[in-house]
Every structure is written in structure tokens, then in C-alpha cells.
Write a protein that binds this DNA or RNA. Sequence first.
DNA 1: CATCATTTAAAACAGTTGTTTAACTCTGGC
DNA 2: GCCAGAGTTAAACAACTGTTTTAAATGATG
Lengths: 210, 210
Amino acid sequence: MSQTDTVSRILDAAEALFAERGFTETSLRTITSTAGVNLAAVNYHFGSKKELIQAVFERFLTPFTEDLEAELDRRIATGQELHVEGLLESLYRVGLGGLSDRGLDPQRFMRLLGLAYTQFQGHLRRFIVSRYGDSYRRFAGLLAEALPGVDPVTFYWRLYFMLGATIFTLSSYDAIEAILREDFGAQSSLPETLERLVPAASAMLKVEAI
Amino acid sequence: MSQTDTVSRILDAAEALFAERGFTETSLRTITSTAGVNLAAVNYHFGSKKELIQAVFERFLTPFTEDLEAELDRRIATGQELHVEGLLESLYRVGLGGLSDRGLDPQRFMRLLGLAYTQFQGHLRRFIVSRYGDSYRRFAGLLAEALPGVDPVTFYWRLYFMLGATIFTLSSYDAIEAILREDFGAQSSLPETLERLVPAASAMLKVEAI
DNA sequence: CATCATTTAAAACAGTTGTTTAACTCTGGC
DNA sequence: GCCAGAGTTAAACAACTGTTTTAAATGATG
């Protein structure tokens, strides 16, 4: 084994197994044997399982937020109007394209993001907020500006509605797609689903009624 | 201890602890010591931890679906038009009111429902689908009828968008509410949040654009 | 060539997990 | 009054968890 790719082999295996089964359901022994490395390597390189979990998230969240920031900069620089649909498209395009360019599976990315919210790992939520909170707040701010009629509290609730619809749906994408394929024979792709999500989420954010 | 309330004491403790920490993160020893019963009682009365998890869900999903069916029957019997907002209101009213009448915490109910979808317990999903799938399909069918313009595949994706927005938001209700209270000083109640969710989810289901 | 970080191996660590056992207590029906 | 059976108890089971330690081997860098 060529020395230092041990770290990335562990990250690869951990990422796949976490997305598939969750954190507590995945043991270090499963990870290391999948990665073909020694059990002690995880504690040697990462310190603990907690820090391994954080490292997995860091590896895909850092390029994701960087790409998103760049995309927002680009949109602002070219003087494009920042309407709701455009912002959501930016978000989804980065999540879909930017990551797969780097060889990362966007679906796995969504499953992990869903886990970060629903599994009970306090340290993970704290880690993500402290590391990527600024980018999140920037995006939320731009979205709020694009919705001048909506009062702040209502806006934030709807932002969470949107996050819920996105994360929930995409992290169970395979299961939902399988059901629809069985019932309607129609198979849909991930980009197609995002194309359905943009107008739906936009409509939800924009409603006039109380 | 008055003999046979051991079963319900276990269910009470398990329900609260599962909602708080998740399934794998909650040990039988924590459950039994919280309930004040012997460790072996779980295996004696329920057979296994899996079956205990299912029993917890059965205890609140059975009254919930019965109430929902009754509410739908009532709406149809009184000849009310079944529009989208009304159906969602029925769903949320039953989830909120019907359960708390029975002394069950609606938020806990939502957290557990979220867990059922996101935790990796294949047996749970199978159990719920086989037991409550008919009620689910009936509700989905009525909702589809109220949306004649929307093609079936798009409808089902949007149904999952709505489920995601609902389950995700309400299962993290406490956390989100705390953030909004800190940032805006405005505190919102669960009924208020559902009042925001009805028009938002309706708008999402009804959009005209592709 | 020596050095030092990296990797492997194997073992042990101390906990925790779900489950099972066998003995015990209690109670309702004969 | 007694006894079968349901209910409870403490103890032990075997398996697994994350982590640490020992040791030896490997490889790149200076």
C-alpha cells in the first residue's frame, strides 16, 4: 500500500458505510477491514471515531461551500438579479455538479447531510455550524432579500420547510425512486427531481397567504 | 408495582428515550431502569428490542390512523369539498389534537416518525408499511384527487417534499424554535407552525409551472 | 546510512450490548 | 390450602464496542 493513502482509504470506506448504515451502526472494525487497513490506523490518524466522522464531513462540505460561495460571487459580479429560483438552482447545481466533478457521489452527500441533522451526534452539529455557518447565513440572507414581502420569522420557518423537503427527499432518493418506478414504470433521475424541487420549493417560499 | 402495568411502564420509558436519543443509542438497561422494572422484563413481554420498537410505534400509530380515517369519513359524510388545505388541516389536526387527547406528546410523535424514516431499521419501515399502508394510500389518493392538474409522478414527488418539510421541521421543532427565539425574540407555538405549514405545503403541491 | 514518521500485527483493555437462564415470588382458580 | 402458571429477579452469557499498547516492519527524507 502506497503509504499515505491510508487516510483517504479510511475516509472513503467510512463515507460509504456511514451513508449506508449510520454512525453508531458502523464499527471501526468494519471501516478498517473495508478499507483494507489496520484497526489502529483510525485512532492513529484521526484520534477518535468522533473526529473521523467530522473529517468525513469536512472533506465534502469544504469544497461544497467553496463552490457555493464562488457561484454566488459569480452571480453577483455579473449583475444577475438574485431571484428565488436562481438561488435554489445555484444551490442544487453546486450540490450536484461541483461535487461529482470531484468524484464525490451527490446522493451519498445528501444522505450524510440528512444524518447530520437527524442522528444524535451533538458534536457534529456543533462542528458544522462553527465551520460552515457563515456560508449558510450568507445564502439565507440573499434568499431573504429575494423575498421582500415575507416577514423574517415566517421566512425562517419556510427556509426549514425547504431544507426538510430537500434533505428528506434526496437522502431517501433511492427508496422513493424505486417506489415510483414500481408504481408508474416511470423512472426519474436526480437532476429531474431537482428540476421538480426548484419550482415547488420556490412556490412554498413565496406564498402570499398568511 | 401493580403487576401488569409493567408493559406500559416500559413503553412509556422507551417512547421518551427513543424520541430523545434514537434506537441504537438507547439501551435496554436505560429503558428498564427508567421504567423501574427488571432488565429481563423487555424480553419477557416483547420478545426482543426490535419488537419493543414496533410496539412503541403501534401504540401511537394505531390511534392516529384510526382518528385520521374517522376524520376523513366525517369530511366525506358531511359532503365537504376535499380541497388541499382542508386535507392537510385534517392531517395536522389529528396529529396534534387527537394524540394529545390521549395523553401522547405530539412532538414526540413527530420525532419518532422522523426516526422511522431516517434511522436504519429495515424491520420498522416494513412493519409500518404493512400495518398502516392502506390509510396512507387513502389519504394520498384523496390529496391526488384534489390536485387534478398535476401528473401522477410529479404529485408523488411533491407528496414526499411535503412529508419531508413536515417531518423534518416538526421533529427538530425544539431546536428550530430555540434558534428563532434567540434571533428574533419571537416565540412560536406548534399550532402556529402548523398554520404556517398548511399554506406553504399547499402552495408547493399546487404549483402550475413544470 | 541513519532517522523518523508511518504502517502493520496481535493482543489486551475495560465497557457495553441484547439475550438467556434458573431460581424465586406472587396470585387466581380448583 | 395448594398448586400451576404468570411475573419478577439477579446473575451470567457471549459478542461486540472504541481505544490503547506492545512490537516489529516498512518506507521515504535528510
